[in-house]
Computed example of a mutant assay.
Amino acid sequence: MLKLTYTENSFYLERLAQPLEEWITARVILALRAGTPLCVEPSTASFLLPADVPQLRHLERHQEGEDAIAVSLCDAEYVEVSLKGTWMTSDSDCAEGVFVASLSYTIEFFLIKLWEETQIQTRCLP
């Protein structure tokens, strides 16, 4: 399962070994017990990757069926990776929250590696 965390000024991607339904159930139970609001809904989420990453062609060849993942050209520098999954937030009008999606292990692992590599490259830029 991929977990995308969106905050006011950042984004973080991670892979969790826990099944999607278990993770969502645990998060809903936690919110209920804590008495905090939680909005859970099917949605799509996206993030950007540099268009010049050589391994990106591998991802484009392995897009999953039924539009679970889509790769689109944004501009000359970036592509947008879009996923279908579940959006969770404490306020339905808020852009901050957590998005979770379940894809094949190969695609999840590959997306994580691509994202991590681009993060390292970004930090190394002068």
Rank of each mutant, 00 (worst) to 15 (best):
T5I: 13
G97E: 05
E117L: 13
G65I: 09
E14R: 12
L2D: 13
Y78R: 09
Q18I: 15
P19R: 12
Q55H: 07
G35P: 05
T25D: 14
D91F: 14
S82H: 01
P37E: 05
V81D: 10
L32I: 06
R33N: 12
W115Q: 10
T106F: 04
L30H: 15
D52K: 07
C94K: 14
E77M: 01
D91A: 15
V71Q: 00
A17L: 08
E116G: 06
L32R: 15
N9L: 02
K113G: 06
E80W: 00
R123S: 14
A51M: 03
A95S: 08
E14V: 09
N9C: 04
V79D: 05
A101H: 08
I24T: 05
G85M: 11
L32T: 08
L13C: 11
W87V: 03
I112M: 03
T7F: 05
V71P: 00
A95P: 01
E22W: 10
L20M: 15
L16D: 03
G35N: 12
D93K: 15
V28M: 13
M1D: 07
T106Y: 05
L4V: 11
A26S: 12
L2W: 08
L73Y: 02
I24A: 08
R15V: 03
T7M: 08
W115S: 15
L4C: 04
V28Q: 11
I112E: 02
D75Q: 10
A31M: 06
E21K: 05
E96R: 15
E66A: 01
A45S: 14
T122M: 06
E8L: 13
T106C: 00
P126N: 01
N9W: 06
L114P: 08
E41K: 14
T86L: 05
C124F: 10
S72A: 04
I112Y: 00
V79G: 09
G65W: 02
L125P: 01
Y6Q: 08
A26P: 05
D67K: 10
I120S: 04
A17V: 04
K3Y: 02
A17H: 06
T118S: 14
P42Q: 14
L49E: 02
D52H: 09
T25Y: 07
L59P: 05
L111Q: 10
E41P: 03
Q119C: 13
L114Q: 07
R33P: 02
L48W: 00
M88W: 02
C124D: 06
Q55F: 07
L48E: 08
A68L: 08
G35T: 13
Q55A: 14
V100W: 01
L30E: 15
L16I: 15
A34H: 11
T89G: 11
E14H: 03
E14Y: 02
P54H: 04
Q119H: 06
T86S: 07
L103P: 00
Y12M: 03
L13N: 07
L103H: 00
